[in-house]
């Protein structure tokens, strides 16, 4: 433990991290106006030299490997693959009112443990995803159960504490869709109750593959932009790989449910 603490102290006393220097060297100049980093570099000859060296190396790299042929070759390669654009046209998460559907929904006796959350010092809240298929009564989705295009999903909440709820969907191409609430760009209040089924249902589109359903449970309302920003950051941090998405930096308890849509046999 002593070793790492000594190292940490040394890091805090020295020049900006190599990553910060790289960022300064390569990012557009407007990203670094009037920052602590730019102030340091303005006054530090060693860091200035490092920045210049990196930029010079980049110039040499681009001379040897110019952008145009590199990207053109990649584009030809990706163009030969089937376009996925049209699979998403149908998504839009069509929200249908549940009234009149005649669908029966029940809270499961054994909730999926990963769907149970609580505020610090608060009481447990249980979330459930319900699946309706081929006109059959909706039932709680089983953990890891695949879903089919055309399935209708709804959400249930049970708990002894009130809060605000926002449910989002994120697909593998970073397309964000708000599932709940459907009618306003902010989280909606949910009162404490033994069980309740949230208004609205989602008809799943034809796209196949992994997606995330991300549930935000907060003490204060969250606006659409805040949630979208947190999700986009998480997606970027995960390098665009859904299985690695972890949403952080938002004042809410977050549950990430991973679903997979497969073709009907």
């Amino acid at each position: 433990m002593k070793v790492i603490d000594r190292e940490e102290v040394a890091r805090q006393r020295r020049h900006p991290s190599p990553r910060s220097i790289e960022s300064f060297a390569f990012d557009p100049p407007e990203n670094h106006r009037q920052t602590q980093l730019s102030d340091h570099i303005d006054e530090c000859e060693r860091c200035q030299q490092r920045v210049e060296q990196l930029r010079s190396e980049r110039d040499g790299f681009l001379t040897d490997r110019p952008a145009a042929p590199f990207i053109a070759a990649l584009s030809r390669g990706t163009a030969s693959e089937p376009s996925r654009r049209f699979r998403w046209l149908a998504l839009a998460a069509a929200v249908l009112l549940a009234v009149g559907t005649g669908v029966y929904l029940g809270i499961p006796r054994t909730p999926d443990p990963s769907s149970v959350v609580q505020f610090k010092g608060g009481k447990h809240i249980n979330f459930t995803i319900f699946v309706g298929r081929d006109g059959a009564p909706a039932r709680p989705r089983r953990e890891a159960e695949p879903l089919y295009p055309g399935d209708v999903i709804r959400f249930g909440v049970a708990g002894a504490q009130s809060g605000y709820l926002y449910i989002a969907n994120l697909d593998g191409e970073n397309r964000f869709t708000r599932y709940y609430p459907a009618d306003k760009p902010a989280s909606a209040p949910v009162l404490k109750s033994e069980r309740q089924i949230l208004e609205g249902s989602i008809v799943l589109d034809e796209y196949l593959g992994p997606e995330l359903i991300i549930i935000f449970w907060s003490k204060q309302p969250l606006d659409d932009a805040t949630v979208r920003r947190a999700v986009t950051r998480a997606f970027d941090r995960a390098g665009g790989e859904l299985e690695r998405v972890e949403v952080a930096g938002i004042d809410a308890v977050v549950i990430v449910k991973r679903i997979r849509k497969v073709a009907r046999r």
Binding site: E22, F70, L74, S75, R84, N174, D236, G239, G240
Partner: peptide, 22 residues
Amino acid sequence: FIKVLRYRSAAPVEHPLAWLYT
């Protein structure tokens, strides 16, 4: 860069260098 070309979000990447490094 194959992955970059396949990235189809309309939203701009907030921190491109961090994203590319990931």
